[in-house]
């Protein structure tokens, strides 16, 4: 139990490796769907419709679109990965090989969260690459771009852990993803600028946490800022939320929620 790899506990590194290999070895399942979906998004919304829309906040529509699509891909993959991995392991009971091992609850949670966040980051990079085929991509604020991507992928991976522990059947995962996550992301200003909304809906939109995530990543890429909340404040709030949800995951694992009888 005391043996370590790369200066890290061996148990944690093993679980992390297992989790990453699970999706890396299935590129058709992991990388092909976001690749194809985003080629379609960029072609239809960016190129075909984009020419009619013109510029938004001083940039072409396709460039405006790119950060939102990166956020959409990164957070849905982070969430889906951790929720699926935990739920599938519970459904088939093989998660017991992990939960009956001498890994600490913190190490178990961190391995699930960080491996899923890594998947989100990889998909974000993939989508950026797809965007670069259609338009020239600039990164105005690399620090904010990296910081926002890391924080939101960790946040959604941690939320996915809660979802994976809560789910009682596969349709719970579908409900969480399709009816909760996707609408929030779509109304989070991926495809439009909040400035085009009537005043009431502009302020209603500010209650949607996705707005700050899309806005933050857009700030990283384009330097453009569509809402009054500065990237620093948004980053602090999102980081706090990510830490809080990871802490919640650890408490749930410790209590055995969804894992023990």
């Amino acid at each position: 139990m005391s043996t370590r790899s790369y200066g890290l506990p061996t148990g944690f590194v093993t679980l992390m490796r297992r989790e990453v290999l699970r999706y890396i070895r299935r590129p058709r399942n992991t990388f092909m769907p976001p690749l194809i979906t985003n080629v379609l998004y960029f072609s239809v919304f960016g190129v075909i419709l984009g020419n009619r829309v013109g510029e938004i906040q001083g940039v072409s529509y396709i460039l405006f679109l790119l950060p939102g699509l990166v956020v959409l891909g990164a957070i849905s993959n982070s969430f889906e990965n951790s929720s699926f991995s935990i739920f599938h392991g519970r459904w088939n009971e093989y998660i017991q090989a992990t939960t009956t091992s001498p890994l600490s609850y913190t190490h178990m949670v961190l391995a699930y969260v960080l491996s899923s966040a890594l998947r989100g980051v990889l998909i974000g990079i993939l989508i950026t690459g797809v965007g670069a085929i259609f338009t020239s991509v600039t990164v105005r604020n690399p620090f904010y771009l990296v910081a926002f991507i890391l924080v939101i992928t960790v946040l959604f991976s941690a939320l996915g852990v809660v979802g994976g522990l809560w789910a009682r059947d596969f349709d719970y995962l579908t409900v969480m993803n399709q009816f909760l996550l996707r609408p929030l992301v779509f109304f989070g200003g991926i495809f439009y600028s909040l400035e085009v909304l009537p005043t009431l809906w502009f302020y209603v939109s500010l209650l949607n946490p996705m707005v700050y995530m899309v806005n933050g990543v857009r700030y990283g890429f384009l330097g453009a800022d569509a809402v009054d909340v500065g990237p620093n404040a948004a980053l602090v709030v999102l980081t706090t939320a990510a830490v809080a949800v990871v802490a919640l995951d650890i408490v749930l694992f410790r209590r055995g929620y969804g894992l023990t009888e």
Binding site: S2, S5, T14, L15, L21, E93, Y94, A97, T100
Partner: peptide, 30 residues
């Protein structure tokens, strides 16, 4: 070391790798 009554084995990996993972969770280097 537990051999439960119900089969609860990782479906994603070949059996040798499943064993390597299990030993790894117990702190055994790769």
């Amino acid at each position: 070391g537990l051999a439960p009554q119900e089969f609860n084995v990782d479906r994603f990996f070949p059996i040798r790798e499943v064993l390597v993972h299990k030993a790894g969770y117990h702190g055994v280097p790769k």
